[in-house]
Design a protein around this nucleic acid. Structure first.
Lengths: 165, 165
DNA sequence: GTTATTGCAAATGATTTGCACAAGG
DNA sequence: CCTTGTGCAAATCATTTGCAATAAC
């Protein structure tokens, strides 16, 4: 899987007359080292943690490249920075449920939702290309049991959902 | 309707011990002078066009107030600035269809979509608070007839959809 | 008179860019 | 070699904020 990603990137670079560099490979590896959402800044940390640092500028530039190569997708969780989703080759749809209590973000798919949206779009005279659903919700666990396993982690990472800053 | 909005704002201000100022009233009027989406910057222009200018800072501050008072809603169309939606008191749902050809943004509702999303959310153990659906689509009119009435207007306003800047 | 509000200009924070140097092919 | 890539620091750009002057109540 790892090698496959590398091959896809290489093919993309070749096709565009771009070069294979150590930085790009190192960023690719960092991007897919977990299959969680991340921000550019989080990725910078992850990359920097490995021996030599890569400049923030290069990280941003490579991220744009990976998006263009369709290895990565940009998503918008409603806060101030762009989030990247490394885990979408397997998941065609990109619906997000964001918990306003604990900050947890759940990615889910639902064929019914896709179908329905396609219908509505056609009815309006368009043809759907891609769709993203964002649901803000509250944590049942927190309400019912008075606690939620994700709450602490969310607080620690300072991940907020509203644009309240 | 106009007076009703003013009353709602006043009630909100009173409840919070805040003050009624000319700026706030003037911004309120500008906000609801059209029922189209707008950005903070567009609103600044609209306000400035009337005689005396109001500082950008005040516009931003008042916008935040109106959102808090639930007279206005923030939406995210996927570009770099926050968009405000003055037209949601009548429209409970906020689903957007964005045409990647002509830039047109259509706001629509669909009870089926709402219901379905609520089901999915519950199944995941959460309770939906609000949801927004964004569908990127292509213009049937452009494909079939080779032209689209919105295309020119969209180009003129420079309204782009991708984060390409 | 207090306390909230405004306008200005400076600060912020994520992202981008110009440029000189380094490195792929 | 020639062109693309990198790192740095400076530049953007929307938005926020500190502060002194001003206006509600």
């Amino acid at each position: 899987m790892e090698a496959q990603l590398k091959e896809r990137l290489d093919a993309f670079l070749r096709g565009k007359g771009l070069r294979r560099t150590e930085q790009r490979e190192r960023i690719l590896k960092a991007v897919f080292s977990k299959d969680e959402h991340f921000t550019a800044d989080e990725l910078c940390d992850r990359v920097r943690r490995s021996d030599s640092g890569i400049s923030r500028a290069t990280v941003y530039r490579t991220l744009a490249l990976l998006v263009e190569a369709e290895l990565l997708r940009e998503i918008d969780l409603g806060d101030q920075h762009t989030t990247y989703d490394p885990n979408f080759l397997e998941k065609p749809s990109h619906n997000h449920l964001v918990c306003i209590d604990c900050g947890k973000v759940i990615e889910f798919e639902d064929a019914h939702i896709d179908t329905l949206n396609d219908c509505v779009t056609r009815r309006l005279g368009f043809r759907a290309v891609k769709q993203s659903l964002r649901i803000e919700a509250t944590c049942e666990q927190l309400r019912k049991r008075g606690r939620c396993p994700n709450l602490i982690a969310a607080r620690l990472t300072g991940r907020r959902l509203r644009r309240k800053r």
